[in-house]
């Protein structure tokens, strides 16, 4: 099979207005992927499926990933001459910027006809709040049908032109998208004799109803983190 760079060059040659970027994967698996833009993703997918050299007729896996907003601190060091005549001082200034987050859909494509693969393609939404639409690839590969419904259910990505986009794992009246990183579960506190992890946090929050952290023998098994002190 051709390399990912060759596939990208052929895609850009065929669809000049499409933006196809190579995303390198730093780990040991070295499974790099192609980032497709949302407007041309459907046509690019059709090309990948029908091209005689690629024949990627089998979409194996559709995954949603949540990349929340990230605060990045940039440290710049400037040299400031000392007004008193001594050696110049190095002053550090920190600026924080917000790298906006996005939701991502990752597709793993293989070929059953030519028995090669994988070719990994990704699509990213503009942000996590209001621009969460991506084109659905179900008209290209029927295999994406249930999996895109699951990504919609758990992440909130709206797949346009999906034949039947509704929740698949949670009930229809459910409002949240549980796999997002900022999902907060409803507070359902049950007293546990050996509270640990976030149950410990909730135990402290519910300390009025349970006197569980007073008394010698109910020691938590994890060391207390500084911000958790009541």
């Amino acid at each position: 099979m051709e390399t990912l760079e060759q596939i990208r060059d052929r895609l850009v040659a065929r669809f000049p207005s499409a933006q196809v970027t190579l995303v390198t994967n730093p780990g040991a698996a070295a499974e790099h992927s192609l980032l497709l833009d949302a407007t041309h993703a459907h046509d690019l997918a059709l090309f990948l499926r029908d091209d005689p050299a690629l024949r990627l007729d089998y979409c194996s896996n559709v995954t949603g990933v949540d990349w929340p907003d990230k605060e990045i601190t940039d440290v710049t060091k400037t040299t400031v001459p000392d007004p008193a005549g001594g050696p110049p001082k190095i002053v550090e200034s920190k600026t924080t910027r917000l790298q906006p987050g996005y939701l991502e859909a990752v597709y793993h494509l293989y070929s059953m006809a030519l028995k090669h693969g994988p070719v990994v393609i990704r699509m990213r939404t503009a942000n996590r709040s209001d621009a969460v639409a991506l084109p659905s690839l179900t008209p290209v590969w029927r295999a994406c049908d249930f999996q895109e419904r699951e990504v919609y259910d758990l992440y909130g990505i709206i797949f346009e032109r999906h034949p039947d986009l509704r929740r698949i794992l949670m009930w229809d009246e459910f409002k949240d998208h549980p796999m997002r990183k900022d999902y907060v579960e409803p507070d359902d506190y049950e007293w546990e004799p050996t509270a640990h992890g976030d149950v410990l946090e909730r135990a402290k929050a519910n300390a009025a109803t349970a006197e569980n952290l007073k008394g010698g023998n109910l020691q938590p098994e994890v060391p207390q983190t500084p911000e958790a002190k009541p």
Binding site: P26, G27, A28, A29, E31, V65, V106, H108, V120
Partner: peptide, 24 residues
């Protein structure tokens, strides 16, 4: 602690292709 990256591993389980996609 595996290094940052992603991988998709799959095998032929009795029911079909069982795959795990991990991002570290």
């Amino acid at each position: 602690r595996p290094k940052a990256g992603e991988a998709y591993g799959r095998l032929e389980s009795p029911k079909g292709e069982l795959g795990f996609y991990l991002i570290s």
